[in-house]
Measured scan of single mutants.
Amino acid sequence: RRRVRAILPYTKVPDTDEISFLKGDMFIVHNELEDGWMWVTNLRTDEQGLIVEDLVEEVGR
């Protein structure tokens, strides 16, 4: 599965499916959606939700 790492921290918008995360958090990407959004699991918190791909970088497989 594709893995990405947060290059900046992010605080979710209330009442959305987004998740908050810290710089350096690692994610497993489950689905890539329209407009640059991805459905992921945060490996640090085990939380699932939406993040925007502009805030992450690819991690070598």
Rank of each mutant, 00 (worst) to 15 (best):
R1V: 13
R1H: 07
R2M: 11
R2Y: 10
R2A: 05
R2Q: 08
R2V: 07
R3M: 08
R3Q: 11
V4E: 01
V4S: 01
V4Q: 02
R5F: 05
R5M: 13
I7P: 04
I7M: 08
P9D: 15
Y10S: 04
K12V: 03
V13D: 12
V13N: 15
P14E: 11
P14T: 10
P14M: 12
P14N: 11
P14Q: 11
P14G: 10
D15Y: 08
D15P: 02
D15G: 13
T16N: 04
D17S: 12
D17V: 08
D17Y: 10
E18K: 05
I19L: 13
I19P: 00
F21W: 01
L22A: 10
L22N: 13
K23W: 05
K23H: 06
K23T: 11
K23L: 07
G24K: 00
G24I: 01
G24E: 06
G24C: 03
D25H: 01
M26R: 08
I28M: 13
V29F: 01
H30S: 06
N31A: 12
N31M: 12
N31W: 12
E32W: 10
E32R: 11
L33D: 08
D35L: 07
D35W: 06
D35F: 08
G36H: 08
G36A: 03
W37T: 15
W37D: 05
W37R: 15
W37L: 13
W37M: 14
M38G: 03
W39S: 08
W39P: 03
V40R: 02
V40N: 00
V40F: 01
T41K: 09
T41M: 06
N42Y: 00
N42G: 03
R44V: 04
R44M: 06
R44E: 05
T45S: 10
T45M: 00
T45D: 03
D46Q: 09
D46V: 12
E47L: 05
E47H: 07
E47R: 05
E47T: 07
G49P: 02
G49K: 02
L50V: 12
L50K: 15
L50T: 12
L50Y: 12
I51Q: 00
I51V: 14
I51M: 04
V52G: 15
V52A: 15
D54L: 06
L55W: 08
L55M: 14
V56T: 13
V56Y: 00
E57W: 01
E57I: 07
V59I: 12
V59R: 06
V59W: 09
V59F: 10
G60Y: 11
R61I: 13
R61V: 15
